[in-house]
Nucleic acid binder design. Structure first.
Lengths: 334, 334
DNA sequence: GTGAAAGCGCTAACAC
DNA sequence: GTGTTAGCGCTTTCAC
């Protein structure tokens, strides 16, 4: 292993002190009124030997790592992967890097991850919280760690968050189905206390009540087997003679499509939550409630950066509108 | 911000020295023959006050960060997102965390990212290299930085790598199409010198020659607009009266399906490279050459860990077989 | 304008 | 067995 060149090497080679080199390297040359000649000489030499400071030592000294922790449900879910991509690009432009981990929505794992990254002195957190995470988040807040939640928020602790307007999203989707002429509109969701799931459920229920129709809901356990989900779905549809369905997540909708294909029944009309290449291309194309991914990523980064730079101490609770993309799967065919 | 508790605080509170605490915390208690009573007292106190060492300081001192840099083409591509997920899980189990960045296959960005993470003292690299990256990789090698490439390798520099057997994958897919009875089998690929693209092309060409048929290839520029790709594809199919197609990547195949949908022509028989939920669910379901993602991730991590732990200095060049999943889209219908 | 030196929090060689 | 202390490589105060 070739030895890395150090700031002291530079100083020695140029016959000046470490301080001077450090000042010049940290753009404090004029502030400290170091001669332009020397400044240029140092810069040229640094360039020549390709010196790069050890960021670790720098971080230890400054307390800043320029790293943001992204603690996310599942990086392989396209919805999260897309957000991750956007966040990464925006953070990168500001000189920040992203360290990520998937939580699988497991509380213990999430807590552990947060502790871990906290010990690593990350500068800020972007988190999709699990139920029960409030105490952990509160602790971060106590330590004045910049953080912002997304996709869902926690009722028990006040924090910055960026979520979609899930109530309205689900409400409009449901209403659209009724307006198309469907009568028995079901809702398939996760058995979860997560805010986004609750809001979607309430959105659906409110729409059903407004239309004075019957509610049909199926809640799937988060740790169900794929096969189990498919069976439950098939039963649910048949038993209640459902003629239209709203799915609370993209993967539930995909399970639904798989069930229909495997068990050879005709999928009723449907709308999915969160867009996916599959929905766009499927025959018939699947209507979706789509979250504004780009804006979510934008807000997340800007809120976090503001906080990290100490610009704003006020709480930011951002709720962004969803977009109902009507495609073929929600068309009424009498 | 509540002050973090330090190892010196522990020592002071217990009236012992930092060394002792450090030894105990680093499992060197018996090695240094520290009394069990003291060991337990320290452990209990550490537990009680919730002391956590500053990992940054630890890293600076030990030179180990327990962080692996994942430098990948595009985290939002399901193929890479899936691998990322698997790598993450396996690394996590070994106490390593992942820091990632997407390169978009741009040389300058990739170089910059590698430098950056190198300066951050990551313990190892997993990289999908771009063309022209050899000098940078060589430099890492000179500095004895553990690294392993994947998805493609570089001819100009010897390194560990894990790739799929792209030649055979493409060859078998092409042969399968001919055996089905198709006559005019085209190949759609990226205009790129990347090894995996070249191998897929050679695999196709060799199969065509063996069958003594005509070659029809379309190479799309990597920075093309989606619309442009679709137009080119439509023209290509019509002009050569293609009756079956092999796509070199999943997104090219998706562009093909989109083109067919938008421009209302019938997609010829086809096989895509890399599986995708869409291909499984599409009507007709799309045959694919699927890479063994799980094994790739396994090999990557085990090779990298071995290297990081200094266990093996020998070069590991792993080529894993692809699996041809025959579905409906490659069926011959006369 | 420039340099010496203190420390960021930790590990581990060395001393006793 | 336990403590003292010298760094890891950097930034920054303070002195000149």
């Amino acid at each position: 292993m070739k030895k890395r060149i150090l700031i002291s090497d530079i100083a020695k080679a140029l016959g000046i002190s470490v301080t001077t080199v450090s000042f010049i390297l940290n753009d404090k040359a004029k502030e400290k009124r170091i001669s332009e000649a020397l400044t240029n000489r140092v810069l040229a030499y640094v360039q020549e030997v390709g010196y790069k400071p050890n960021e670790l030592a720098k971080s230890l000294r400054t307390g800043k790592t320029k790293i943001i922790a992204l603690i996310i449900e599942d990086i392989s879910n396209p919805f999260f992967a897309n957000i991750a991509r956007l966040i990464e690009t925006k953070a990168y432009a500001q000189g920040y890097r992203i360290i990520y981990c998937s939580t699988d929505n497991r509380l213990d794992k999430t807590q552990e991850l947060i502790e871990l990254f906290y010990d690593r002195q990350v500068d800020g957190f972007i988190i999709t919280p699990t139920v029960g995470l409030a105490p952990t988040i509160q602790r971060l807040k106590d330590h004045a760690v910049p953080l912002v939640l997304f996709d869902r928020f926690l009722a028990d602790v006040q924090t910055n968050f960026v979520v979609a307007d899930n109530f309205t999203g689900a409400n409009e989707a449901t209403t659209h189905l009724f307006e198309q002429g469907f009568e028995r509109v079901g809702f398939v969701s996760l058995r979860s206390e997560q805010s986004q799931m609750m809001d979607r459920l309430t959105g659906y229920s409110t729409a059903v009540e407004k239309q004075a129709k019957e509610r049909y809901t199926l809640e799937v356990a988060t740790d169900s087997w794929e096969q189990d989900i498919q069976d439950k779905l098939a039963d649910f549809i048949k038993e209640h003679r459902i003629d239209a369905l709203l799915f609370a997540t993209n993967y539930l909708a995909i399970s639904g499509l798989k069930a229909a294909k495997a068990q050879r029944f005709k999928m009723p009309a449907m709308i999915a939550y969160d867009d996916h290449t599959l929905f766009e291309m499927y025959e018939p194309s699947i209507s979706v409630v789509s979250q504004p991914v780009e804006e979510i990523a934008d807000k997340l980064i800007s809120i976090l950066l503001n906080q990290m730079q100490g610009k704003s101490k006020s709480l930011r609770e951002v709720v962004l509108p969803c977009q109902l993309k009507i495609r073929e799967s929600s068309r009424f065919i009498s």
